[in-house]
Design a protein around this nucleic acid. Sequence first.
RNA 1: GCCAGUGUAGCUCAGCUGGUAGAGCAGCUGAUUUGUAAUCAGCUGGUCGGGGGUUCGAGUCCCUCCACUGGCUCCA
Length: 642
Amino acid sequence: MIKITFPDGSDRSYEAGVTGMDIAQSISHGLAKKAIAIKVNGQVWDLTRPVNEDATVQILTWEDKEGKSTFWHSSAHLMAEAIEALYPGTKFGIGPPIDQGFYYDIDPGDRMIGAEDLPRIEKKMQELAQHKSAYIRKEMSKSDAVAYFRDKGDEYKLDLLEDLEDGKITFYEQGRFTDLCRGPHIPNTEIIKAIKLTNVSGAYWRGDEHNKQLTRIYGITFPKQKELDEYIQMLEEAKKRDHRKLGKELEIFTFDDDVGPGLPLWLPNGAFLIEQLEWFAKKTEEEMGYLRVRTPHIAKESLYLTSGHLPYYKESMFPPMELEGTTYYLKAMNCPHHHKIFAASPRSYKDLPMRLAEYGTCYRYEKSGELFGLMRVRSLQMNDAHIYCTKDQFESEFKRVNELYLRYFEVFGIEKYVMRFSTHEPSKLGKKYVDNPELWAETEDMVRRVLIHSGIPYEEVPDEAAFYGPKIDIQIWSAIGREFTLATNQVDFAQPLRFNLTYTTSQNEQLHPIVIHRAPLSTHERFIGFLLEHYAGKFPMWLAPKQCAILPIADRHIPFAESVVKQLKAAGIRCQLDDRSESIGRKIRDAETGKIPYMLIIGDKEQEAGQVAVRKQGEGDQGSMEVMAFARQIGQLVEDMR
RNA sequence: GCCAGUGUAGCUCAGCUGGUAGAGCAGCUGAUUUGUAAUCAGCUGGUCGGGGGUUCGAGUCCCUCCACUGGCUCCA
């Protein structure tokens, strides 16, 4: 007998060799029906695999994250079975579960598989699922495994096998499909009830663009049709939040073929948002001791050779231009210009920390396929600043920058983000990273200390640092689930050396400062794209381009409405009179869809009482009040939200 | 840049297997003067993304370029 301990701490005895399914059955029939896999001492196993020793277990169902992964992983196998049945000779790469569903990378040979094939594959999957095929785990020797795939002619699986150790190789078989797979899997295909193949795209083998491109098919499955319907519903809701859609509807920005891809044109509402954000950032930065500077949009090649950017990022910069025998580049980053400002005069330790800030406009050649609305563009304006400080000042300065981030996030109500700490990979020193192991170690330790002291949760990702130093990124997700770096905070010990930036210490020595690059509000482009989705177009009062619509019911109310506009404008409220000869219902509707936060309705009653009827966007009638009382209320809202 | 898909009026979209473009909204004009999410009528508007080809004839078929969308790769 063996002792099985459950998550609640209770335990029971079972015969050695008991399976997850047996255990689930012994608890309840309902659980057995819902069971997908079992977690044994922290590892996820098949329900059919025997447990031979004492263990702590947890039955996994669809409600568990690992349950979903297992379900989707098995669904990927089911899709592969369908593809092999429909398109014999297809070779298979990898087919893992992802956050929302799964994919399988396949090589269909000379045949093309496109969007029009998806319904066919889907139908086949549904048919195969009903066969209730069991997922059967088989341990294989490496030589047998190699022989199997050599016989099948699948070079991708052979490539994968090369990295695997003999004795640890398992195959899974369901129906007529056998795959090299670590598992685990669901007991059988029948529990896959709802299937949707969502997308087909290209994906490089092993993620390397020098390798062959395979066809990647994405899909998602559920144990119930209702859940699939809800998922599709959710996707449609997300699309409504998409900043590209909202940006068009609310007249924030546009693109034009003649201007060029990735070069947004800011419409008046968008320009207003930019100016509000700049005003807010400049005020905040001034309070925190930043000095504003301004620099040109281009510079000579030599500047980027000095900074070291050119060899690393030439491919991502706009091509050079020749002028009077000299090569110039559009600037892709502000730091070299700022370093030259630091270098413009001799600096003393008394000048440090020196914080130079600029909403600098940059141009980057993002490859055509990478452009995405406002989130990835070719012209961008960064909320940039460079802090020059001594080593002793570094920790407190870095900490202050992090505090600034958190302050901004609070103002904008940003809650869903991940802080990512990127460090270097020692074997790539001199290639991807500047060759200075001591400074890498020292600065990474300093950053880690700040993060731990601040109590900010973060995840550390090796080999993702900038070439000049470690960095912190704030990751966010767009409405349709794509991940972006919103803000970044980077350490740079390399450029001060390259530019020979120095300051005089109290001992009259010359030392190099450390530089912190920071952009807590990202770029205008990305930040406004993000805010559009974050607020679903309903900007808080202080940001809303139009705060209030004045809606007279009939033409005879226009003179009074005009006097209301005058009073509100004098009180600093952004309002707009709708004097069209339309019904009040229509005027309300247009203001509602325009996401204007307040509507003031003016008819006979209001005119007589000298009041306005207040309607709140999305909420409806709020009753009547004096104009100036309303103005004070809005003024208060603006104050509160700053 | 790569793979797949899309591109018809300012916007959202029809247009079957090739037979010389259509709706709703927006816009303009007029009527209407309205009480909390679309008042009515008339009119204007498109070398069907650009270029080339096949054909008696191309929005529709082919080639090519451009842009956009979903991914891959990249992201100082």
